[in-house]
């Protein structure tokens, strides 16, 4: 086995140890101490960036959610307000219409009753005129037919009795 028998040669052990020391020293100091920390730093920085970005995305998601929630609340509120305004307007319009109708009604009935009063007044005055004319005519007729002068009051009473039954 050369791995053991070669120890007998004076150069073997010294050369092996010297060169492994040199090459492993190079690997340790240049690669292990020099390059590895930089590569690890890159990986760490990337991991941190990924974690930060994920956190930022999560925060943005939450913000979007709350924004949407507030938007929905706002739109709900404004819809309710709009509905209320519409019903108010409808109520007010209905009330206005009622009031106006009532006013017009009242005016009309006033006019009606005034017209009725006029008519009855006209009728009574017409009645009265008819009575006096009838009484005159009756007294004239009586005077012409019988020559008797009837007193105006009598004639009136008689006409009244006839007219009013």
């Amino acid at each position: 086995m050369p791995q053991i028998s070669q120890f007998a040669e004076s150069w073997y052990a010294a050369s092996q140890i010297f060169w492994v020391l040199l090459t492993f020293g190079f690997v340790f100091f240049v690669i292990g101490r020099g390059m590895l920390p930089k590569i690890e730093a890159t990986v760490d920085a990337r991991d941190r960036k990924v974690a930060d970005d994920l956190a930022a995305a999560k925060a943005a998601h939450a913000a979007a959610d709350s924004l949407e929630e507030s938007y929905r609340q706002q739109s709900d509120a404004s819809r309710a307000a709009a509905q209320k305004a519409v019903t108010d307007a409808k109520d007010k319009a209905a009330k206005d219409a009622e009031k106006r109708l009532a006013k017009v009604d009242a005016e009309l009935s006033d006019k009606l009753s005034a017209a009725e009063a006029d008519i009855s007044a006209a009728r009574t005055s017409a009645m009265a005129e008819i009575e006096s004319v009838a009484a005159d005519a009756a007294s004239d007729l009586v005077a012409k037919l019988s020559g008797v002068k009837v007193a105006a009051a009598d004639a009136k009473a008689a006409v009244k009795a006839v007219l009013h039954g």
Partner: peptide, 13 residues
């Protein structure tokens, strides 16, 4: 002890 450049050293390098 003699220190030599060997095949082993070459492959390590």
């Amino acid at each position: 002890h003699e220190v030599a450049f060997t095949t082993s050293a070459m492959w390590m390098v």
